[in-house]
Design a binder for these strands. Sequence first.
DNA 1: AGAGAAATGATAATCGACTCTCAATAGTCG
DNA 2: CGACTATTGAGAGTCGATTATCATTTCTCT
Lengths: 122, 122
Amino acid sequence: MSRAKQQLTVFRALGEADGPLSARELWSRLGGAGVGLATVYRALRRGVEDGTLESVELLGGGVRYEPKDREHHHHFLCSICNHAFDLFGCVEGLESLVPDGFQMTGHEVVLRGTCDECANAA
Amino acid sequence: MSRAKQQLTVFRALGEADGPLSARELWSRLGGAGVGLATVYRALRRGVEDGTLESVELLGGGVRYEPKDREHHHHFLCSICNHAFDLFGCVEGLESLVPDGFQMTGHEVVLRGTCDECANAA
DNA sequence: AGAGAAATGATAATCGACTCTCAATAGTCG
DNA sequence: CGACTATTGAGAGTCGATTATCATTTCTCT
């Protein structure tokens, strides 16, 4: 593989994914061989520093990364394949949960369950 | 400290907390000295096996534990002190986020921001 | 093409979280 | 009290994730 801008390769793979990917998921998608794990980590770190990428941490799954240019959205975590999927839309009524004196700056919603594919395979 | 049922000590501390605690938080609340970290981990593990405790994993915060006998609730994670607080109530409209073919079995909502105390200290 | 800068891959090193080991201690029960 | 079992604390060991090292390769610019 040409060594020019492997970072672009990493970003492209993230952009094509249907949800945030962990460093390892990303690495295996890139073929494992051909791109070093260290390079994946480097690209991710730089992406976050650049503001191009965003890291999200979901329950039980460690840190994953996704392009920062996406609209506000949340995630679905399949408890079988452990893959995270993007969801669209948001929910109502978050403000009412905030206790007096607390200031909310953001929120995260994670749905757990079985994804399409795993549900059919079962 | 008497060695009888340190596990109870651990459970009590969790019960008195205003939110889920990590093993380390719990350990430092118990005085650090006096109870070994290993004992804390052991008590937590047994608690989860018993069904007495539940482990929750919030964004950016690792694994925390809380008594399982609580009502359905969510959490507020202070980005300054990094402490997790219990919230009461839930939100509407979660089902509408689930894609076709996916089966939701649970969900987690985490609010981020500044807690009472940190907001005043700032 | 040639020099210097930047990026890369393989692997060693690090880090934090958690578990295991083991001798010592406390609890149980006759 | 005395034998036997369960629990404990301290520290070593393990495990996975991430980062650092470094020789090599690729880029950029002339």
